[in-house]
Design a protein around this nucleic acid. Structure first.
Lengths: 140, 140
DNA sequence: TTTTATATTAAAATGATTACAAATTAAAAA
DNA sequence: TTTTTAATTTGTAATCATTTTAATATAAAA
């Protein structure tokens, strides 16, 4: 399972396995949402009341460094993390800020003109959609 | 020209035309880059030494509200603004952080599955590419 | 020219993130 | 199992970006 995988990845990197870290893994891999630092911190404090925000930041940064989670830059207001590293896109409701995954086989690498491609070593690509979800449309 | 256009847009919205605002318009429409708040502030202080950061923030926010500039969410480290509101994409060098425009006729609205489309009122879309520019590849 | 509503400014408040040093602990070695 | 050691966690303080606020200044209408 993914939590075991993270433990193995941390061990391989010479990092220690602490209960705080495992709790963060558990939260990331059992929620289907795209949590913020505060979401994660709120959950962890439920289990380890004395946990420090620094620990959450450090662990997330380490996981990003290992390529096991990704930051979603869909909005400047919030910083969301995504434990799903398969290629996919996101859509955010501009009102309630919820983010949903979009899986599609047609990720548009082909948008990149040759003139750009030859001047860059391409490392990644992100596609974000913005809209109003049906719930928020109904409300207003 | 675009500066005249912004002046007209502000007037139409019942907003006043101040030298500070005009200087911000001038900076935005005579640079081809994607400036941050600090880039703009640095330029404006050259002309109005006593200008306040608040004025820069307020003016940018107003322009975003009028739909005349857009925020680029390509990175959480920086907040870049784009005075070009035509549909286009961006590529950022992950090392030097420079952002370049990409114009392409094939913006992938078609990436959106019907199942998602029917649950959202789509308002916008952004595509970001990440890579190393030739200059930064050479350096390392 | 006077008036008035809006904009600017400076300073303080807020919020997110990072840096730091002391105390704790995971895990390797004995 | 116990000891040792290096890494981690914690709490606090520092930093940085952004927003709020209230007083002052000013664009533009009267």
């Amino acid at each position: 399972m993914q939590i075991e995988r993270m433990i193995r990845r941390f061990r391989e990197a010479g990092l220690k396995i602490t209960p705080q870290r495992v709790a963060i893994f558990e939260y990331l891999y059992t929620t289907t949402s795209h949590p913020t630092v505060d979401d994660i911190y709120a959950y962890i404090t439920g289990r380890f009341p004395s946990v420090s925000l620094t620990t959450v930041y450090n662990t997330l940064q380490t996981m990003v460094g290992l390529g096991e989670i990704e930051e979603i830059a869909i909005s400047h207001e919030r910083r969301n993390f995504d434990p799903d590293t398969r290629p996919h896109s996101h859509i955010m409701c501009v009102k309630c800020k919820r983010i949903e995954d979009i899986y599609t086989d047609n990720l548009s690498e082909n948008c990149l003109p040759e003139s750009v491609r030859k001047r860059y070593r391409i490392l990644g690509q992100r596609i974000y959609f913005y809209g109003l979800c049906s719930r928020c449309v109904a409300e207003k």
